[in-house]
Simulated scan of single mutants.
Amino acid sequence: MAGKQINPIVKLVLEMGPIVLFFVGYLMLRDRAFMIGGTEYEGFILVTAGFIPLILLTTFLLWKLSGHISKMQVATAVLVVVFGGLTVWLNDDRFFKMKPTMIYTLFAAVLGFGLVRGQSYLQYVMEEMMPLKQEGWMILTRRVALFFAALAVLNEVIWRTQSTDMWVNFKTFGLTIGVFGFFMLQGGLFQKYAVEEND
């Protein structure tokens, strides 16, 4: 079952679906408050509570359909459960807003650790999608590690200084566009260090 191909549209829906539903749910409930068990919860808290089982379900479905999930997906799911759970349990939205900071800091630290050891851990995750020469992988890994570190700092600045509306928009659209734009800007590196078929 390992390595089984999955329909790209299904994969995209399972990966992006929870984020889109979180955004839609937030738009619907952001101005409402709910009394549950004698405690008042804002809409953001309830949407976060719904996001936790949703991300676990989609991660499970990805594993069931493809036969494997990446370590990044596992780490993301674990951090969603931990920080989302703290958000709901303590009725404090700050924990969930910290989650992207923790995720990107973790990724940057792991990639940085690999670089210190002279290895590209990014290569282990993405080699099948983008065959590059070793030098190219090392350069790309350095750039990705710095990019993740910058995203962690940016998330901290935004959630601590801006409104929840601003943070949700940043998390839903800003991060997605940022990651897409970053890899688009690496086109020159991909061309320069691409592994030719006859290499």
Results as ranks from 00 to 15, higher is better:
G188W: 04
L79Q: 14
M102H: 02
L61R: 08
V78E: 00
S163G: 09
F147M: 04
V10H: 04
K97C: 07
F107L: 15
M129Y: 11
L185E: 03
P100Q: 12
V153Q: 10
K133D: 11
L175K: 01
Y193G: 08
R117N: 13
E135H: 08
V74G: 05
L140W: 09
V47S: 11
I158L: 08
L154Q: 04
L54M: 15
M35A: 15
I55G: 03
L14Q: 05
V82P: 01
W159Y: 15
V168A: 06
L146E: 04
W63A: 08
N155Q: 05
T161K: 10
M102N: 00
W89Q: 07
F180K: 01
G187M: 06
V88K: 06
A108C: 06
F113N: 05
A75K: 03
F113Y: 13
E128Y: 07
G38A: 13
S70N: 12
E196C: 03
F51V: 00
D31W: 07
R32L: 14
T58V: 12
W89I: 14
K99V: 01
F148L: 02
V116R: 15
T176P: 00
D199T: 11
T59L: 13
T87Y: 04
G84E: 10
G187A: 04
K97S: 07
F183A: 03
M98C: 10
F180R: 00
I103Q: 03
G25I: 03
V81Y: 04
E156M: 13
L146I: 14
P8K: 03
A49Y: 04
L175Y: 00
K97D: 01
Q119N: 08
N155T: 06
Q186P: 10
G136D: 12
K71V: 10
E197N: 14
K171W: 03
Q123H: 15
A108K: 08
F107A: 09
K192E: 13
L29W: 10
D165A: 08
L12M: 13
